[in-house]
């Protein structure tokens, strides 16, 4: 056997999926900040989190991802895409880019993604469940019903979220997410 006939192989890259995920996670991160300042349920969920709370939601091994934490006033704040220099209290990592693509293109709902062992969570499980609920609400605001139904476990009925609250909230959250306040 000639060893040089069996060279090292470096697996390729998938830039399209990475770019899609980077954009999706950027919007979601900023939308969490906006939703926590607009929607009372999300606001309450954030109030229940500890003062030093800082979440990283990203894709293994090299991202993309986002960091959302509480600022000095105790309000939710999008803190960028990079982990460096941040003391993360809750890490939610999707095991690979394909799994992230399945979840964030809604081929699999977040709950099914968890059941299929696509996530690694390090931190307080109670906080992770809280963030799961926040993500569901943010998706309801960001996406049309036909898509959101694929992403969340149960789509809220009129009593749980009135159309007025949903549509007005959607406009405000989109505006805040784009403008970043």
């Amino acid at each position: 056997m000639r060893i040089e006939n069996y060279p090292e192989i470096i697996p390729g890259k998938n830039p399209f999926k990475k770019i899609y995920l980077a954009i999706f996670l950027w919007i979601t991160g900023r939308a969490i900040q906006a939703a926590a300042r607009t929607d009372r349920v999300v606001k309450k969920e954030f109030e229940m989190l500890p003062d030093d709370f800082m979440l990283y939601l990203g894709v293994s091994p090299n991202g993309p991802g986002f960091v959302v934490g509480k600022d000095s006033n105790g309000k939710a704040k999008y803190m960028g895409a990079k982990l460096k220099g941040k003391s993360i209290t809750l890490k939610m990592i999707i095991k690979n880019i394909e799994a992230a693509f399945l979840v964030f293109t809604f081929q699999e709902s977040t709950a099914v993604g968890f059941a299929h062992d696509r996530f690694m969570v390090s931190g307080n499980l109670d906080e992770a469940c809280r963030i799961g609920r926040v993500l569901d609400i943010v998706e309801i605001y960001l996406l049309p019903k036909i898509i959101t139904k694929l992403a969340v476990k149960r789509y809220p009925n009129w009593k749980q979220m009135s159309p007025i609250r949903k549509h007005v909230g959607r406009v405000i959250i989109y505006t805040r997410a784009i403008l970043g306040f």
Partner: peptide, 16 residues
């Protein structure tokens, strides 16, 4: 198999 390892930090030492 190689395609499934895209965007990972793995290096395949050799494929026999």
């Amino acid at each position: 198999f190689i395609k499934a390892l895209s965007d990972s930090n793995l290096i395949i030492g050799a494929l026999y």
